[in-house]
Design a binder for these strands. Structure first.
Lengths: 212, 212
DNA sequence: GTCAGAAGTCATCAGTTGATGACATCGTAG
DNA sequence: CTACGATGTCATCAACTGATGACTTCTGAC
C-alpha cells in the first residue's frame, strides 16, 4: 500500500510551503487524518467517503486516486495509528512492547479519555473489519500488551500467566471501550490518573500473599 | 433482477411442529430469532433485511408488516434478548437485577461462550446503533449489573462503590467481548467455570482484610 | 361451496454508497 | 510564454439497502 511520500510538506507547517494550494502530500495527510478521526469515532461502515472528504476539505474522489479504495484508506489509517503509545512520557515507543501492567493501563486509559476508540479498537470490536485487519490488531495486542503483562504475572508467581494477561488486557480494553463510548457517566467522567490506580489494583490480582 | 427466489418454501425452519403453513405467530418468531442471530453476529448495519428474511425462511417484506421497520425489529430483538439470564440455574430471571458479582460473571462468561456478542453487547459497542437503543442498553446494564455489584462493594467497605462497579462491569464485558470475538486463543478456549474464578477474583478487588 | 380476510409474494421505488472517467485548472519546466 | 503533467472538480454509474403497495394464495367461518 506504500504510504507513499512523506515529503514533509505538512499542512500546518507555516513556513515550509504554505502557499501551495495544490499539494498531493498535504491532501493525502488530510484524508488520512480525517479517516483516522471518522473511522475511530464511527467505525468503518458509518464513515462514508463523502464525509471523510468533507472533514478533510477534499474531494472524496481523491480517496480513490490516492489510496485506491475506502478499504485501502482504512488499512492506511490503521497502519498509521499508534495506539497513543508515542505519548507515554516523551518517548516515541511507536511499536515496542510496554514495560508492565501499570504502563499499559495508563496508556489505554489516557488514550480512551480523549477521543472515541481508535481504528485498532474498532477493528477488534467490529466484525465488518476484514479478518486480515483483525489478525494484525490482535497480534499487536499480544505482542505489546499480553506479553509484558504475562511476564509480570509469572514473575509474581501466579499460575496461568498468559491466560491471566489475556483476561487483564481484555478487561482493560472493556474499560477503555466503556469510557470512550460513554456507557456510564461516572466512569466516563473519571480522572484517568485516579482510575488507573483502581484498575491496576484490580487487574494486579495479587493474592493475599504473593509468592514473589 | 431475480431476487433469488427462495427455493422451497419452509426450508428446515419448522423443526418444531408447524404443520401450519401460514402462521403469523411462527413467522414473527422466526424473524425475531433470525434477527437476534444476525444482529448479534454481524451488527445492525451489516445484517440486512433480505438476509434476515432468508435465514428466517420468510419474505423480508414481512419485517415491515410485523415489526414496522428494521429498527423496530432490532428493538424487539434486544427486548427479547435475555442476556442468558434465564439460564442461571433454572430460574427465569428475565429482567431482574443479578444477585452479586459472581453471578454476573458467570452469566456473562457463559453467555459469551456460545455465540457472538448478542444484540445488547453489539448495541453497546457499535455506534451505528441509535442513541435510543444505546441508552436502553446502558440503562439495563446499570440496573441489572452495576447496581448489585456496587452494593456488594459497599458492603465490603470499599470506597467509590459505584465507580468500582462500573469498572468491573466494563472490564467483564471486555473479557466477554474478547472471548466471543476470539481475540486471544487461550481466552477463547478457556472453560467458563475455570475462567469465572479468575475473573471474579480479579474483579472482587478485595483488600487484604475484607470488611464483610 | 364460497367468500372475506389473513398471510405471503413480488416488483419496484427512492435514497445512499463507493467508484470512476471526463473535464477543468493549476504549477512549473523548457 | 507555452505546453504538459500533476492536481482537483464534477457528474454519473452500478450496486445495494430499506420500504411499500398491489397482487396472489391460503385458511377457516358460515
Amino acid at each position: 500500500m506504500t504510504v507513499g511520500r512523506s515529503d514533509g510538506t505538512g499542512v500546518d507547517r507555516g513556513a515550509a510551503t504554505p502557499r501551495r494550494t495544490r499539494n498531493a502530500g498535504a491532501t493525502r495527510e488530510a484524508l488520512l487524518g480525517a479517516a483516522q478521526d471518522l473511522f475511530g469515532r464511527k467505525g468503518y461502515e458509518r464513515a462514508t467517503t463523502r464525509e471523510i472528504g468533507e472533514v478533510a476539505g477534499v474531494d472524496p474522489a481523491l480517496i480513490s486516486r490516492y489510496f485506491g479504495s475506502k478499504a485501502d484508506l482504512y488499512l492506511a489509517a490503521v497502519a498509521t495509528e499508534r495506539l497513543g503509545a508515542d505519548e507515554v512520557d516523551g518517548h516515541d515507543r511507536t511499536d515496542a512492547p510496554f514495560d508492565d501492567l501499570a504502563q499499559v493501563v495508563e496508556v489505554v486509559l489516557r488514550r480512551t479519555a480523549r477521543r472515541g476508540p481508535g481504528p485498532i479498537l474498532q477493528a477488534l470490536v467490529r466484525d465488518d473489519a476484514s479478518a486480515e485487519i483483525r489478525e494484525a490488531a490482535t497480534a499487536r495486542l499480544e505482542r505489546r500488551m499480553v506479553g509484558p503483562i504475562a511476564a509480570g504475572y509469572e514473575a509474581a508467581g501466579l499460575d496461568r500467566p498468559t491466560l491471566r494477561a489475556q483476561v487483564a488486557v481484555a478487561a482493560l480494553l472493556g474499560v477503555g471501550l466503556a469510557r470512550s463510548l460513554g456507557w456510564f457517566d461516572e466512569l466516563h467522567a473519571a480522572d484517568p490518573g485516579d482510575l488507573a490506580g483502581l484498575v491496576t489494583d484490580s487487574l494486579a490480582a495479587v493474592p493475599d500473599d504473593p509468592a514473589g
